[in-house]
Design a binder for these strands. Structure first.
Lengths: 143, 143
DNA sequence: GAGAGCCACTTTCCATCGGGAAGTAGGCAC
DNA sequence: GTGCCTACTTCCCGATGGAAAGTGGCTCTC
């Protein structure tokens, strides 16, 4: 076990967990990360919010995230950030300035998921037109 | 506009839609596709459920999906499939056998999202161990 | 010809969840 | 003191998801 290389361990993990099974822990994890706010937080901290295309990942303050993720309630933002911190996807740092400032930053684990989160956002933005067209067809056909 | 090539159109679409904005249609689309059942349905129809690793995409029956996505309620399965059909990600085909059979199959649009859906599932399964370890640390530190 | 069965839903009921708004804590500035 | 700042926390209520039972069309059995 201790001499197992990373690739082997990963292969075993893939065999061990299966999100199709209701009782598998990876099902709950899938449920947590399949969330609008999770995707947007990962994109924000990953640097995707820069006006001139994706920038570098960077730490952001609570209020900065709240402003960027338009429409998020403070309750959901706090709750989502806490669960991501608990799962090790980001770190929460309190700086005792006045008033106190709290910054959030992606961990390596969070960065690895950020790549996929970015793809989801890009997909939604890139294919919005096609989806809208399909919706029109569908609604016209079923009216 | 009609002479615009695909790459240009896509670039414009990226500039046109921004999921960070609450009122942007792509925000709603992101919300719909950021869903446990959507990810699992895309994975199932994409052929990821085969025992010997990912196979080819294939059409599946309603009952087959219900069996594979352990724990899904009939209501949510029907509801999710309908919204994916409306958005043009899959097709629904009714065959008037006895009893009637209904099959679902990914469209090209659905296939393009399947690649990302597969990544999310794999990420959850591959990093489950790390997340579990972080959770233990967090819970121990905050107890 | 009265059940019984099958598939794909649809409906009903209830518990949980998410959003909106208001309240809290701790410290400095006036 | 009173106000103000950030980062929450709490409360209330409407929306959402799950469990389970019902529906409809057709066929097969007794």
């Amino acid at each position: 076990m201790t001499t197992m290389r990373a690739a082997q361990r990963q292969a075993q993990a893939k065999a061990e967990y299966n999100a199709f099974l209701a009782a598998c822990p990876s099902r709950q994890l899938l449920d947590r990360i399949s969330d609008k706010w999770v995707v947007l937080i990962l994109c924000a901290l990953g640097g995707d919010a820069a006006p001139q295309g994706p920038g570098a990942p960077r730490a952001m303050r609570y209020s900065e995230l709240a402003r960027l993720l338009a429409g998020v309630s403070q309750k959901m933002l706090t709750q989502t950030l806490r669960s991501l911190e608990r799962d090790g996807l980001l770190t929460r740092t309190v700086t005792p300035t006045v008033p106190v400032t709290v910054t959030y930053e992606l961990t390596d684990l969070g960065l690895s998921l950020h790549r996929t989160a970015r793809e989801i956002r890009y997909w939604a933005q890139a294919h919005m037109g096609e989806v809208l067209a399909h919706r029109d067809d569908y609604d016209a056909a079923t009216s």
